[in-house]
Amino acid sequence: MKEVLILFIIFCSLLCCTYLFAQQSEIVYDNNSQIEILTGADVCADIVTVNGSFSGSGTICSGALPVTLSLFNASNEKNNVKLYWKTENELNNSGFQVQRRAEGNDWVIVTFVQGNGTTNEPAEYHYTDAKLMPGKYFYRLKQTDYNGNYEYFDLALPVIISKPNEYRLSQSYPNPSNPKCNIDYQVPENINVNISVYDLLGKLVTVLVNAKKDAGIYTIEFDGTNLSSGTYIYSFTAGQYKEVKKLILVK
């Protein structure tokens, strides 16, 4: 077994690579084994047992495989939270599960961001958690290696999404649309909202929203697939507030 292992490690060393037994949960070498691991080679698993001798300048690692996280912060713009984190080095890193918890609620999984495996170079990661309702939010990263080992990194401070302080209707985007576009609107209080689309003759084309909404910022989609190209009017009504804008549909 010694000769095969040495030849394999020499091959890896010539290629200037590191080989990780990443998918193994346990590696056990037989009694009286003589293991030589050369520079640039690592033997890693949840459990590594050598029933013999070990030599060489390579490494044997077992248990959780580390990621050095040097930075984890967040910023918010309106109701979007931008997360940023940086690693100084990674070993056997499958990736990061982004988790969020609203105050008084349980943790939920937001997304998974692929890691860089094994690297000694710094790596930067970004993710935007979009379209959140007003409230206080906590974030953490669940870093997982290829063996399933994991650890948590918590954001130091919660992120506060404030309630809007005014009514507002955005211009549709993209505009012109072909054939779909988005429309943002915001309300500063719980109120009945109606957003309807009309043609230039004043004929009702479709109703996009007709419901009571909590204070917050919202996005809706207008789909003009079954409509003719042209200019349309969309009207936003919330209590006594009313605003009207135009959108252009081009096919």
Rank of each mutant, 00 (worst) to 15 (best):
F11N: 13
N93I: 04
E88W: 06
P158T: 05
E88Y: 02
R140P: 13
Q240G: 11
D199Y: 01
E124P: 10
Y167A: 08
Y198D: 09
L91S: 07
G202K: 13
K142R: 14
V28S: 04
L71H: 14
I248T: 15
K180M: 13
G63K: 06
Q171L: 08
K82E: 11
V250N: 15
Y152G: 08
A45W: 01
Y234L: 03
V48M: 02
G216Q: 05
K212V: 15
F138L: 15
T219H: 10
R100T: 02
K131Y: 13
G115Y: 04
K86Y: 03
K242V: 15
Y218G: 02
D42P: 04
T237H: 08
Y125V: 07
Y19S: 09
P158C: 07
G56S: 00
S13M: 04
K136Q: 09
Y137T: 03
E90T: 06
E189G: 05
I217M: 11
C44E: 08
A102C: 14
L141W: 02
Y173M: 13
G224K: 06
R100D: 02
G115D: 01
I248N: 14
I233D: 06
G115F: 01
G58D: 01
Y185A: 10
N79T: 04
L38K: 00
Y173W: 09
C44M: 09
K82A: 14
F236P: 14
Q143I: 11
I27F: 00
R140Q: 07
L155E: 15
T59N: 13
I191Q: 07
S62D: 10
G148R: 03
Q171W: 04
C181S: 15
C61W: 12
L14V: 06
N149L: 06
G239Q: 07
N226P: 08
L38E: 01
Y127V: 03
Y152A: 06
T68Q: 14
G230H: 10
I27N: 00
L7E: 13
P66V: 09
T144D: 10
R101F: 00
T225C: 03
N31H: 08
G95W: 01
G117M: 04
F222Q: 03
N32D: 13
E189L: 10
R101C: 12
V113N: 12
P164E: 03
I47L: 06
A130C: 07
V81S: 00
E189W: 03
P122L: 03
S177T: 15
A238Q: 09
L141P: 06
Y84H: 15
Y218R: 06
P158R: 06
K203F: 06
D214A: 13
G202W: 04
G95A: 00
F8G: 13
I160Y: 05
F8L: 14
N93M: 10
D214T: 10
I160M: 08
A22H: 08
I160S: 00
C181Y: 02
S53P: 00
E3L: 12
A130T: 14
V98S: 04
C61H: 12
Y185N: 12
E221Q: 14
W107R: 09
N147I: 06
L141D: 09
L7D: 12
I220P: 11
T87G: 08
D42E: 11
K82T: 15
V110L: 10
T111M: 05
T49H: 01
L200P: 04
Y125N: 04
Y152E: 02
G56E: 00
A22V: 00
I37G: 00
Y29Q: 00
G40R: 01
P66R: 05
D184E: 15
Y125P: 10
Q171M: 07
E121P: 05
H126K: 11
